[in-house]
């Protein structure tokens, strides 16, 4: 990461407000830096390829994801079924791809929900501090403590079993830690010179939060987001246990891994392939996340 950067892109106290918000070039440069990061590019490309395979693959497969063959159960990987078959003789490859659609979608949407709520909530609490912060954080404490299983069952009782409810249920728990992390970071940079400077220039609070503070704590946000995605993908498996979200015979990575874990000794391919794809996705996400973090790290350029 030896990207060079012109001084104009550095937010520092002696710049005018308009320079401070020279956003577009900042993003463009970040993009350039990202493109030079081999691992990040690898991660990004892998994710794209995986997503593409999951979207297109099932149409190319000769098998349907719910198509059973009870005379060919637990078939090991081979020419007919590249990744083998499951307990009902269904093709694992096509189930993995179809499951990928679900898991990627759940990962993206639910994470966005958690991310948006968590960042805004945490930033507001951290920025205003005092009573506002106190009340907001006690609400977070309450949300942490409420029994999740019961919460989810109740949601289903009142709102049915729609897939959107799944995102809401996941979002409702996963934003909490994000909010606490963001709040901590915001409080720590609140007293720094460049924020004081922005204040003294009379910028609006919203502008300070969103244009100056959040971009400066993107690092931890990105890191925690990449940690949230796998948690969400596995949480989905638990919610489908409660009857919310993905219903059989539809698959998801979480349910495939859970299923494979129970049969890992006798039929290892049922765990190995979903597990490998899951890991590959997470590693790619982290490479991309780290690259993104580096690319957006405006201070790093001073090295």
């Amino acid at each position: 990461m030896a990207a060079t950067l012109s001084p104009a892109q550095l937010p520092s106290a002696d710049l005018s407000p308009s320079d401070l918000e020279a956003g577009s070039s900042l993003w463009r440069d970040a993009w350039h830096r990202l493109a030079k990061n081999k691992l990040a590019v690898f991660g990004g490309v892998t994710l794209l390829v995986l997503a593409l395979v999951c979207i297109v693959g099932p149409w190319l497969s000769p098998y349907g994801y719910e198509e059973q063959n009870l005379n060919n159960t637990f078939a090991p990987p081979g020419a007919a079924h590249w990744l083998g078959t499951d307990q009902l003789g269904r093709d694992l490859l096509v189930r993995l791809m179809v499951g990928g659609r679900i898991s990627i979608m759940v990962g993206l949407i639910a994470t966005s929900v958690a991310l948006t709520i968590g960042v805004i909530y945490g930033a507001v609490a951290g920025f205003f501090g005092g009573k506002t912060d106190s009340v907001m954080m006690r609400i977070v404490d309450i949300m942490y403590a409420l029994p999740f299983t019961i919460f989810v069952i109740l949601l289903m009782v009142f709102f049915g079993r729609h897939i959107w409810l799944l995102f809401f249920a996941i979002g409702a728990v996963e934003w909490l830690t994000m909010a606490r992390i963001v709040r901590g970071q915001i409080m720590s940079i609140k007293k720094m010179e460049f924020i004081e400077a922005a204040r003294s220039l009379g910028l609006g609070k919203r502008r300070i939060i969103f244009r100056h503070m959040i971009p400066n704590i993107l690092g931890p946000i990105i890191v925690y987001t990449t940690l949230t995605i796998p948690a969400i993908m596995l949480l989905e498996a638990f919610l489908s246990f409660l009857g919310l979200g993905v219903q059989p015979p539809m698959s998801s990575w979480g349910t495939l891994i859970k299923d494979g874990a129970e049969k890992m000794e006798e039929y290892p391919w049922l765990l190995l392939f979903p597990g490998t794809i899951f890991s590959l996705t997470l590693f790619s996400l982290n490479f991309l996340g780290d690259g993104l973090r580096d690319a957006l790290d405006v201070r790093a350029a001073k090295d």
């Binding site: 059973q68 009870l70 009902l88 246990f241 059989p248």
Partner: peptide, 15 residues
């Protein structure tokens, strides 16, 4: 009710 065994039986019969 949620259980691995009931699920596969239901899936097989559904098919």
């Amino acid at each position: 009710n949620t259980s691995e065994n009931h699920r596969v039986i239901a899936e097989a019969i559904q098919q």
